[in-house]
Design a protein around this nucleic acid. Structure first.
Lengths: 161, 161
DNA sequence: CCTATTCGGACCCACTCGGTCCTGTTTCCG
DNA sequence: CGGAAACAGGACCGAGTGGGTCCGAATAGG
């Protein structure tokens, strides 16, 4: 369904949560604040740390901390960290395992422009954009100085559907 | 992984194949020409017919026929026909089943701009664009007059990844 | 030096999806 | 008028992956 995993959704929630509050936060702490099951939060944080989006501090009084401000993190990076590289089909041109119907497949490698278009759309939107007006006033904490994060102008093409 | 189903890939292959050759083609015929298993082709065609992209003719000497030229079919429609509506997360704002952590979820409904961006990217690309230079010379049949299908210019944004 | 706390990696279960098959209905040919 | 060809709709089964849980490793504090 072209839907990304729920983990990625959680990742966005976690990252946004991580931007507010204390500098370093623990998995249970974030879980409690977001309502996401604790093990799942830990798993997400783990993947995020592997992707370099958050830095971890082990040991007592450890936890996680944002590596970069939200405005510099495009959605594409979050998706890549959680769900792996963005590729709609298995037939990406660099794939080692070519499809078995290679000789006949008429659209071999033709998904590339689609992949590229999607990747660009995802790269143009940062987490700060999603945070904009997302957090109700009650949850809104005074962030130091979150850049306005260049407004995304993808509305030039009329939406047929 | 933000990957769409293999069925959608097949659908594109089938539709492109359907654009060449005879006016009406049978499932076995398309299967033989594309190398895709026959039952799978039938399933794809069925979904495509339900989506209105192809018209079916029952009975002996029946088969499937394109409803519209490739240039007027955006990828988004194919995906919608096969994989259902394009929505990256379950938390689309019109969803009847609100997520259980609704009260705490800080990015509730914030995926909409992402969904919109992707939908636009997918709507801007038609099947004719994927057919362009996709079919090797050997397979290229003299199509009557397939519109050049306005080149998609999505390469204005530099790709970070 | 020991202990508590927290991250890190490995494991397992369940769900959805890809793929197949069968039966029924419709239409053309003999 | 009967048979064959082809689509339509459903159910069924297996594989892959997402989602959740557990235990071990590392580090700061006492």
């Amino acid at each position: 369904m072209l839907r990304l995993s729920k983990l990625t959704d959680y990742a966005v929630v976690v990252l946004v949560r991580l931007s507010g509050g204390a500098a370093v936060q623990t998995s249970p702490g974030i879980a409690g604040a977001t309502g996401i099951p604790e093990p799942t939060v830990a798993k997400v944080l783990k993947a995020l740390a592997a992707g370099g989006l958050v830095t971890s501090q082990r040991g007592a009084h450890g936890g996680y901390r944002l590596s970069r401000p939200l405005a510099t993190i495009p959605i594409a990076e979050v998706i890549a960290a959680i769900d792996g590289p963005i590729a709609l089909t298995a037939c990406v041109d660099g794939s080692p395992t070519s499809c078995e119907v290679l000789g006949l497949c008429p659209v071999r490698g033709r998904w590339d422009p689609v992949n590229t278009a999607i990747r660009e759309a995802l790269t143009a939107i940062t987490l700060a954009d999603m945070q904009e007006a997302a957090i109700p006033r009650a949850f809104r904490v005074p962030l130091p100085e979150q850049a306005p994060a260049a407004p995304v102008d993808v509305s030039s093409v009329p939406l047929a559907e």
